[in-house]
Nucleic acid binder design. Structure first.
Lengths: 323, 323
DNA sequence: ATGAAAGCGCTAACAC
DNA sequence: GTGTTAGCGCTTTCAT
């Protein structure tokens, strides 16, 4: 890798001049510019971005902290972040936190040491002070909502009401909601949407709770179908849970959607890979990631965001698990 | 962020001494060490890794180039890379190449500018000179095999033979292989494994070709089942393809595995999310990622790897799509 | 219009 | 043992 010095020598000018043509700043004569360009070409010179970082205290990197890339919700998110980061000349550092506050803290320290320009984080907000104190631009995604950080979330409450409505409208009479873990904001909001809709329509309902995870859901489903034979409509708080219930139902010969209708939440890719395909309340995952990234870059550039909380509408996707 | 200078002043010593205690290099008296540590504590000092990078020409970052994190094969891989990178104090930069050589080149240039210490890449090897020339340590994963780069692959050929054997052994008489795109090494190897096994056993067979992608496979499957009613065993070159065929079969009321048995390849997570669960030739994805990362770090540290090509055995996982 | 030089934060000779 | 200083590659005043 050639350095700016070598380019300067090759071009017969000073490093300052080279720097000027590199950054299109200040005055530089046509002749100098030309010879510098030729030298750059000849030496195949590429500016060293570490040196730039040191001077500017920025790195053109953004840190992405997610619980686990292996969770089907996050690859699409990560892709969106990377795509728009790339467009604006940023590069993304991927971190799996496993929701572990220690890991999160460690990563944030790391980011500071590397002059990372900004952070996108998906985590529950228990320790949000950590992020706020850290001075570095941050936008939160999906799970944090109770803080003063700019946040992108989908409208979980409305999505849940819509799903509930759809189930009712499709003729289900005995509904159950399999909610996600208490204390996780999206799970709570979806739960609230479900019961508000049910109460408004004066229906009874069953509530069960499951982790956002296939195996747990399957286990729960085994019991569930034993004890709740009358249920004919299930609104699940995530696609993973829905797929768990669907699997168990299929295994038992329960006809989907004839006997039981199922709706998931998230709009994750594997909803289309199964048969019957999963009806779901889709979050615009890619769009959320892209928006979060654009917001972050805006903040990095010193601009204010118009809102603190961006709530994106969900979209009902009717597929094969509803009539 | 405090600097080493401030720490030095606070501790009443020179920056050199601070640097010495930071790096545990050279002599430093107990007293100095103590006061430096106190100062570090007090100022909450963390060394600036950009400055370190500039001096050392290393960054403790490794670049991970994959086609698309959204492809279910890669999240687990990325997770493995991140996990072991983390253990060794490295941080990972994620890049989606979409198999586009221009993007790959762009990323590699970026990496050089950032003093990225090494690269793990999954891509077809058409332009491997690019990487080899680049001087920076690289390990290739999965798809490249015809180059002089250290490479981690699974034993696609044997895996394919085993799958074929299993199908035959389970009583399938009319086999088809849905191969992946020609020219992609793993697809070619699996294809070869299939036909070698079939020829050895003197059976006829059908070959079709599909992209490694659900939609394409579904489309192909629609036709396939129209024209090949007699087929009772299908070995697919990837899980995505297998799932496509499974979906279409189920939709048509074909009984799986009674009428048709299906085996996929990859061992991707969603194989367990569907019903019936997919029988597949599993690649140890996580292990491959972890091994590649360890290898890379070894090379970064100037050691030689024992082999150039690490071929990891696959594992037959019998689930619900075979008898 | 251009060059000299200081400085970003750190490390490693080298001198004492 | 410890401090001084040059230098990693770049940007940007400040002279000229």
């Amino acid at each position: 890798m050639a350095t700016i010095k070598e380019v300067a020598k090759e071009a017969g000018v000073s490093v300052a001049t080279v720097s000027r043509v590199l950054n299109k700043s200040g005055y530089v004569s046509k002749e100098s510019a030309a010879s510098v360009k030729k030298a750059i070409e000849k030496l195949n010179y590429q500016p060293n971005s570490v040196a730039r970082s040191l001077y500017h205290k920025t790195s053109n990197m953004i840190g992405l902290i997610i619980p686990d890339i292996t969770n089907p919700f996050f690859p699409e998110l990560a892709r969106a972040v990377e795509d728009v980061a790339m467009i604006y000349g940023y590069t993304v550092v991927l971190c799996n936190s496993d929701q572990d506050p220690d890991k999160e803290k460690k990563y944030i320290d790391l980011f500071k040491q590397k002059y990372v320009d900004g952070i996108i984080i998906t985590a529950h907000g228990s320790n949000s002070e950590l992020y706020i104190d850290s001075k570095i631009p941050i936008v939160a995604l999906d799970r944090i909502s109770d803080s003063s950080l700019p946040t992108v979330v989908s409208n979980n409450y409305d999505g849940a009401r819509n799903a509930t409505k759809l189930l009712l409208q499709k003729g289900a009479k005995n509904l159950a909601h399999i909610r996600g873990p208490q204390g996780i904001t999206p799970a709570d909001d979806r739960y609230q949407g479900f019961i508000d809709e049910m109460k408004e329509q004066h229906f009874d309902y069953i509530i069960e709770e499951s982790a956002f995870e296939l195996k747990a859901a399957e286990k729960l489903a085994e019991n569930f179908f034993n004890t709740h034979a009358q249920v004919d409509g299930i609104f699940c708080s995530s696609d993973a849970i829905a797929v768990g219930f669907l699997k168990v139902a299929l295994k038992r010969g329960i006809k989907i959607p004839q006997d039981v209708q199922i709706i998931g939440f998230d709009g994750v890719a594997f909803g289309e890979m199964i048969y019957p395909e999963l009806t779901t309340v889709a979050q615009p995952i890619y769009d959320m990631g892209a928006l979060a990234t654009r917001l972050l870059i805006k903040i990095i550039n010193g601009k204010e965001t118009e809102q603190l909380k961006y709530e994106i509408p969900t979209k009902m996707i009717e597929r094969g698990t509803t009539k």
